[in-house]
Simulated assay, not measured.
Amino acid sequence: MYQPSISRRGLIATLAAASALPLAACGSEDAKEGSSTGKASASDGKTYKIGVLQLTQHAALDQTNEGFIKALDEAGLSYDADQQNASNDQTACQTIAQTFVNDGSDLIFAIGTPAAQAVAAATKEIPIVGSAITDFESVGLVSSNDAPGGNVTGSSDLTPVSDQIDLLVKLVPDCKTAGILYCTAESNSTIQVDLAKEALESYDLPYEEFTVSSSNEIQSVVETAVGKVDAIYAPTDNTIAAAMAQVSSIADEAGVPVIVGCDTMVEDGGTASYSINYVDLGHKAGEMAVRILTEGENPADMPIEYLDASECTLIANQASADACGVDLGILDNPKIV
């Protein structure tokens, strides 16, 4: 039976405890732009103005947004949330970030690395809580993950990459060459790719990288990949995740399994994953925001927070497994979608 090897490699715990390492990073109803109002707080009666900048529309980021709002509501916070989606456009991120600053937001929630970078560039005074970001330190958002030192903190979506590679090897035992699919424009993906390479090398399994710079290149790149490899690994990359249905359609037709970085990528067609939960991730960020707003905590002194490895879920897509000839019966009680 497949058993995740967190205790053996412990990537999440290691990064949380040793932030100096150069490490860092999927439903729900779609997040919609506009304002939402939370229920009244019994603590101070103030209504907080919160800007929410989501990088793009896909299930993992939607779930992160959902979890954040859930935490605010559970705390009884009174708030007006201005929900904005940048549609994966960096210029739009910058414009929305500046609007939040000009509007005098009490706090800004940034979902995705480029969104957080745009907000951090726009203000050094307004507290910023980020999420769906793999390594805050390596992308320049904080001085260190243990001691942010500025106005940015949040929750990391570092996934157990080595366990995901273990899963690839388990499900595709005859794999001779693995492909790694990601977008070069996403720094968090590069961090995960480095971890994947390390894990593949520990198996002496050859690999080839297949990269895109935008969603327009996905079809041609994946079509090339499935002709060269026996299995593909795709990390929690926003560009790939948003196009997962397209990726899986091409891969399934070729009989090439795709092991992915998160559960929503499996739900959208990926073969399998060992995944964190993005609602929980957003909820953790929301709890941090509540402490900043109501308890006066300073983001500079709030270490980046991580989900515990025990909260990860083994998940598999039956249709993809059938198309690729993968036997899910060897897995230990996976969630099947």
Rank of each mutant, 00 (worst) to 15 (best):
Q117G: 02
T113K: 05
D44V: 12
G269H: 03
T64S: 04
S187I: 10
V52D: 03
V260W: 04
A86F: 10
V119G: 07
S214N: 05
A31I: 09
D80Y: 04
I128A: 09
V152T: 04
A122I: 08
M288I: 15
K176R: 12
S87D: 15
T177N: 06
S248M: 05
K176Q: 14
V247M: 07
G51A: 13
I292W: 11
A31H: 03
S131H: 13
V266R: 02
H283Y: 15
Q57Y: 05
S213T: 12
T236Y: 02
G296I: 04
F210C: 06
V161P: 02
V337C: 08
L141R: 08
Q63A: 10
A42W: 02
L205P: 02
Q117M: 05
S156F: 06
V52Q: 06
E287Q: 15
P22E: 03
T134G: 15
S249G: 15
G261Y: 03
D301R: 09
P4V: 06
I69R: 07
V247S: 07
I111E: 03
D230Q: 13
E311M: 15
A20E: 11
H283V: 10
N216Q: 13
A300T: 11
G76Y: 00
I191L: 14
A42L: 04
A20K: 09
I111R: 01
A254D: 06
D230L: 06
Y79F: 08
L328E: 00
A118Q: 05
V142F: 07
P127M: 09
I336C: 11
C93N: 11
E33V: 12
D82V: 13
D280H: 12
P114M: 08
I259W: 00
L307T: 07
A75Y: 02
E287C: 13
D73L: 00
Q117W: 03
P235D: 05
S220Y: 03
S138W: 06
A13F: 04
I191S: 10
D268S: 15
S156E: 06
E209Y: 00
Q90P: 04
V229W: 09
D308M: 12
Y2S: 02
V258N: 03
T64F: 00
L205Q: 11
V119T: 11
N216D: 13
L281M: 14
L200Y: 06
A199R: 07
A300V: 10
F136Y: 09
E223M: 06
V193I: 15
C324D: 04
S189P: 03
F100R: 01
